[in-house]
Write a protein that binds this DNA or RNA. Sequence first.
RNA 1: CCUGAGGUGGCAGAGCGGUUUAUGCAACAGACUGUAAAUCUGUACUAGGUGGGUUCAACUCCUACCCUCAGGA
Length: 346
Amino acid sequence: MIKTLKTNHGTVTLPSFFPDGTLGVVRGVDSIDLENAQVEGLVINTFHLMTNKIDQKIKKFKGIHGFMNWQRSVITDSGGFQVMSLVHDHPEMGKISDQGITFKWNGEKILLTPEKSIEFQLKLGTDIAIVLDDCVRPEMGLEDQKKSVERTISWAKRSKTEFDLLASQGTSGKAKPLLFSVVQGGNNKKLRKYCAEELIQIGFDGYCFGGFPVQNGKFLSEIVGYVAKLLPDDKPKYALGVGKPENIVECVQFGYQIFDCVIPTREARHQKLYIHEGKSYSNINIGRGIYVQDKNPISKNCDCHTCKNFSRAYLHHLFKIKDSSAFRLATIHNLRFYSMLMEALK
RNA sequence: CCUGAGGUGGCAGAGCGGUUUAUGCAACAGACUGUAAAUCUGUACUAGGUGGGUUCAACUCCUACCCUCAGGA
């Protein structure tokens, strides 16, 4: 099992949690805040940045790193998740064909193909690119799962071809980024196995558990653990979209080493803050009335900027008056909670 | 003092002569898993300026008074 991952922007010690900075920012915090919270890397999103024409905006910078002033690792997600969250869940918002995906977005039509996704990710100067996949929910039927797997494999092949072509061409001496592919197949072990084998056959620098790891509010331990066993131990294993702290602990035992999830950041904005308690953890809703006069920090066991400097009462107040600093301070704390969690798991 | 408008729950603000009657904010609680999320979902509280009248029934109609706002003197 590998312990570190070298990217064009440093070495990541595994396992590691990368928060989602979908639009080129982790909402509410800046790159310095992230460094201070001991965040090792970020996940940003091809689909969202494409719709924002970020390639135009970063022309005078050295890729997204220079633009964000973020010198640690960046994973670019392919837009595969939006296939599910926008198109599968809302058919009026787009169409999927073997060629690619057509999104309807703010009156504009956006065509995303595996090739375009790769090209865009390389333009951003990513450290880890991810192939476009046909992401579906685990509750979808067998036929849909089969189709998703076939498309995912075929798109992975096309992505790899495009990647080899472009990454060897114009990178001017810079080392190639890494390319990860995504295992689909829903809750079906046969499909997962088939998908994994085909992807390994093509050959990638890392492999991801894809799809939605939760069904009916329950984390899909069984299938997530199963997929980990299918993947080669000499390559990083990435559990996309995982997860709650206990899910991550479980997945590290399965052998996954990279994680990303909106939970720590979104929940921070929604006032839910995590607290380490020995080997376990708890959380509080800082918006609750009981914190109005609570002089304690969020967590006595936390060394983050927020806990070192501010009380629960003050953070409660900032949320009540809807000041954006509430988001920042809460997000900093939850991200530090996650980075401390990962430190304990390394 | 005159004229006009109006007085509705902690606040803002609708409708209606009659079984649960808004709605929003605030309050209280919960959800969130490759971010269409500063989002979403619950819960509670429950009102009709005051007196009198009409009516089987009034927050709703009539009347007097009180108060507020705008314009005028």
